[in-house]
Design a protein around this nucleic acid. Structure first.
Lengths: 151, 151
DNA sequence: GATTGACCTCAACATTAGTTGAGGTTCTAG
DNA sequence: CTAGAACCTCAACTAATGTTGAGGTCAATC
């Protein structure tokens, strides 16, 4: 049986220390709908323990380069007000895995291009995929078209 | 033999169109020491053609997630005032390759952790490398550092 | 029951990476 | 030579992601 300790909600200081995220950042996340907290009678925050997992997810996703807005959107697929189940997390995480895989692939592509392009000193934008990594082109309004170089 | 056309320096409009980087961003890069330009008698910018390559490098590096400051530092290893040789670019690019390799490794690590951690629903921060991806906490004052790459 | 560290809110500031606009100048095509 | 497109500078603004500080409250310990 888990001890009572195990279930006690976390203060913001505890969450901050354990997650490595500053209290001010946690406030910020809350203001932006990424995490939430109960309050004590005296108005202090008390976090469910699974918030730690949520914050971990936020940090992880940020490291992958995703903006908080996107992360918040993803987190909205988690249940509100109760601890998510494994199933909840798995669903979310498999979506994220796809992102990760794509980012890894893009980076590898980039590295190979560097070897072949900058590495050889050519960096001929004409043949080089560096500038147009297959994503974004139609959606963009102004800027960033045509990396073909007539050289 | 290259035609005269080939050697004509680029106006900011040309550089902008070919690089896909807005003129205002090019101004910004110049203010921040990432690129430079000659001036005409009438004070208009004229870019050496290799600036295109430089800008390509900047964009590429940014996509990898590097801040302009780091990119500028790297570019400082290129010669000032003359077109870099292949050797110049190669030196720089091999350093970047190392960075890229590290980033790829970190992302892969992250993905594996996701599979093992979030994927299984545990995401136990205690045992999980997600939160402490080998960079350290000792130096940190208060939470939430940006993930800066080792120099 | 006082002290002290942890916590609260709110507003202002910081940094990165630019964009926008006003007001004026230069370049080039006809 | 002149019209209009392209360029110039400078200052102000944007957006994301927080941090810092002032002024006040809460709660755990001596």
């Amino acid at each position: 049986m888990p001890s009572v300790e195990t279930h006690r909600p976390l203060t913001i200081g505890e969450l901050s220390e354990r997650s490595g995220v500053s209290a001010s950042a946690l406030h910020f996340y809350e203001r932006n709908g990424l995490i939430e907290a109960e309050r004590t009678a005296g108005n202090q925050r008390r976090y469910r323990r699974d918030t730690l997992r949520r914050v971990a997810f936020i940090k992880t996703s940020q490291r992958v380069g995703l903006p908080l807005k996107d992360i918040r959107d993803a987190l909205e697929s988690l249940p509100d007000g109760r601890t998510p189940t494994k199933r909840d997390w798995s669903r979310l995480s498999s979506r994220w895995r796809k992102e990760l895989d794509e980012r890894i692939a893009a980076l590898q592509h980039l590295r190979n291009d560097l070897d072949g392009c900058i590495g050889c000193g050519c960096l001929s934008l004409k043949s080089c995929t560096l500038q147009n990594p297959s994503d974004e082109l139609g959606a963009s309004g102004a800027g960033a078209q045509r990396w073909t170089l007539p050289e």
